[in-house]
């Protein structure tokens, strides 16, 4: 039984290729493996950096922001908890968006010469980011165990939040990667935009304590709100939800669908632009 590929000029742009799902999975893993191999080439500490990075970030942010807000000891502890459980997820989110957005342009030699499912490149970035996320989460888990804060039952919610984070970040990555094939403006400002997103997202503080006045619904359109609070819900068992969180979650999931369609639409003429 061999496969048949049939293509006609009239095929609608959203029609998937018969073996494209299998192809996408294999390619995403192959690209991720490449990136992970290359990651710590010519470094001394190698994989220790994956552990050191989140530790350094959590510690500095807690101390610096704690000082800025002049928090007392108990406040500092709460603050550190909030930050620590949300930060690995945020790092993963922004890694997937920034690297994924660049991935088609950065691999243009390959993209213009080989036909593979294009989502594989952004997906591979999500996989690489997930590896970092796992390391960061292990550090967080260890910390929570030490201070006896982890909620064993609530942890069952973690896969749900992880899946949401992957979808929401990939949606943006797909959409930005598709746009960047023709217009690279976004790639230039993306680091700044993500930095800004960090400050308007409830990463260091839960949205209950941090919702800018006068933003109204716009604050909740940010998919990272549901993500960051979701990690608190899963790690610490806090009941963080407000009705408005549904807007944020819907924006993340719709963003994924939109990104997926954008990428498929762009894929058809990709080799003509790169």
């Amino acid at each position: 039984m061999s496969s048949v590929r049939e293509v006609t000029a009239q095929d609608p742009w959203w029609k998937p290729q018969p073996d494209s799902a299998k192809n996408a999975r294999r390619m995403a893993l192959a690209f991720a493996r490449r990136d992970l191999r290359l990651r710590y080439v010519q470094t001394q500490l190698g994989w220790l950096w994956a552990v050191a990075q989140p530790l350094i970030l959590i510690t500095t942010l807690t101390l610096v922001l704690g000082r800025v807000f002049a928090l007392p000891a108990e406040g500092l502890r709460q603050f550190g908890l909030n930050l620590a459980v949300a930060l690995p997820g945020w790092i993963w989110f922004q890694f997937t968006v920034s690297q994924g957005a660049m991935s088609l342009v950065a691999n243009q030699a390959l993209v213009s010469k080989a036909a593979f499912n294009r989502s594989a490149l952004p997906n591979s970035k999500a996989i690489v980011g997930f590896a970092d996320f796992l390391v960061g989460s292990a550090v967080v888990a260890l910390g929570l165990l030490l201070i006896q804060e982890a909620q064993a039952l609530a942890l069952l919610r973690l896969p749900l939040v992880i899946a949401y984070t992957a979808l929401a970040s990939l949606g943006w990555a797909y959409a930005l990667a598709s746009v960047s094939v023709r217009r690279r403006d976004f790639l230039a400002v993306l680091p700044v935009l993500l930095q800004a997103l960090f400050f308007i997202s409830p990463i260091a503080l839960p949205s209950a304590n941090f919702a800018p006045v006068g933003w109204g619904i716009f604050y909740w359109l940010n998919p990272a709100v549901a993500m960051a609070d979701g990690f608190r819900w899963a790690w610490l068992g806090w009941d963080v939800w407000q009705p408005a969180h549904a807007i944020s979650a819907a924006s993340g999931i719709l963003g994924f669908v939109f990104g997926l369609l954008a990428l498929r639409w762009r894929s058809r003429r990709l080799s003509e632009f790169l």
Partner: peptide, 27 residues
């Protein structure tokens, strides 16, 4: 034929597994 470009007219049909090698020496 390798699927990099979509035809603007007509159709094609390929039976079996296919590999496309453009510029094997690079990349």
């Amino acid at each position: 034929l390798s699927g990099l470009l979509h035809p603007d007219e007509g159709s094609y049909r390929i039976k079996g597994s296919m590999a496309s090698l453009l510029e094997v020496g690079t990349g």
